[in-house]
Design a binder for these strands. Sequence first.
DNA 1: TTGAAGTAAAACCAAATGGTGTCATATTAA
DNA 2: TTAATATGACACCATTTGGTTTTACTTCAA
Lengths: 106, 106
Amino acid sequence: MTDTAQNVFRALADPTRRDILRMLGRDAMTIGQVAGQFDMTRAAIKKHLTVLNDGGLITVEARGRERINKFNPAGLAPVLSWLEYFDRFWDDRLAALKTTIDKDTA
Amino acid sequence: MTDTAQNVFRALADPTRRDILRMLGRDAMTIGQVAGQFDMTRAAIKKHLTVLNDGGLITVEARGRERINKFNPAGLAPVLSWLEYFDRFWDDRLAALKTTIDKDTA
DNA sequence: TTGAAGTAAAACCAAATGGTGTCATATTAA
DNA sequence: TTAATATGACACCATTTGGTTTTACTTCAA
């Protein structure tokens, strides 16, 4: 396995992949289902899913001839870790994020 | 200017650029100073700084014949916004980030 | 004013990226 | 068994990316 953080940032660098991740955040989907939402071939979507999987952002579960792709929240951890380095620069902007977090963790 | 979020994620996709950003987070530097820290030509560094600037992650201030490159914390806002979408998935991991935030905002 | 320092900009190159189409394989259903 | 479905894997292509060299322009200092 290569550098984890790099794989995550690389995975997030493409807008299609970020959209796929949002979609999988709502519902787990097969490759075909994901492809149905984009004007792109299944092969292209499959490549994106591979990159997302390499970045640990999704998990793939085989079910018969289908592959269920699920969003993996833990995969975003490297991004959060990386962002923490800049904590001291954040003030009001981060405070806003903090409140949204509070709503969940309360 | 094209899509802001895309420019930010694209800027963060390269490890050299992430390293540069960390360096600029500690101290503002000229192109030459940044280049001195990497085994790479000034031209290459200049390109990276352009991408970081396009992403709004740094600001460049001319001083004589020098260009002072500064980290711009606000440039990371699109990343935070994008991450907020996944709030409901985060629990303990995000709680950790929350505590570090609390230390700053207290 | 002349030379050195700092940067900008352009031409160029190899490799990675994002897409396609095709074919093979495995599984479900008739 | 056979046909359709869902995916995997490969070859291929155009464009982008990350790097280099080279040249030119400003600005500082002697």
